[in-house]
Amino acid sequence: MDQFEPKIVAFVCNWCTYAGADLTGTSRLKYAHNVRIIRFPCTGRIDFLLLQQAFAKGADGIIVSGCHPNDCHYTSGNFHARRRWMVFRQMLENMGVEAERIVFSWVSAAEGAKWADLVNETVESIKKLGPYHKYQDMAKSLEEWEVTHE
C-alpha cells in the first residue's frame, strides 16, 4: 500500500500560535511537512464554515490553535472560540462527522516545541484514521452537480 500522506490545514491566530510556529522555525525544530498554515487575527475570527470548506476541499485533518485562555491578544477571542468549538464539535458528532480529525490546541508564542509536536502527532493520528473518504465522497457531489449544471 502506498504511504498515505494526509492533507492538514492549520487555522491559527496571529499573536500566539503563528508566532509559536515562527519560533519552531527559528529554533530549527523539524516537523512533518503535511501542514499548511492559514493566519487569522484571532481564533475568534475562525468561522466554522471555513472548517466545513476545508473538509469539502479534501483536508484529512484540521488543526485549530490560538492563545491559551487568559492570554488572548484581544482578551476574549479565544474564550468565544472555545465555546463555539464546544458546540460545533458536538454538532459534528451528532451528524456523524469524525470530529477527532479536528485537533484543537492552545499554542503560545513561546511554545515552538509544542507546535512541532502538535503537527507531528496530528499527522500520525490522521495517518491512522486514513483519508477522510466519507466526507470527500460527499464533496464529489458538488463537482458532479457542477458538470450537469454547466
Binding site: P41, L50, A54, K57
Partner: peptide, 23 residues
Amino acid sequence: DLYGYSNKQIYTEVSALLDEALV
C-alpha cells in the same frame, strides 16, 4: 466583514490551499 482578513480572502485561501495535490 474584516478588512485585511475578509470573508472573500480567507475563504479563497482555504479553497486554494487544497486545490492541488498537496503533499
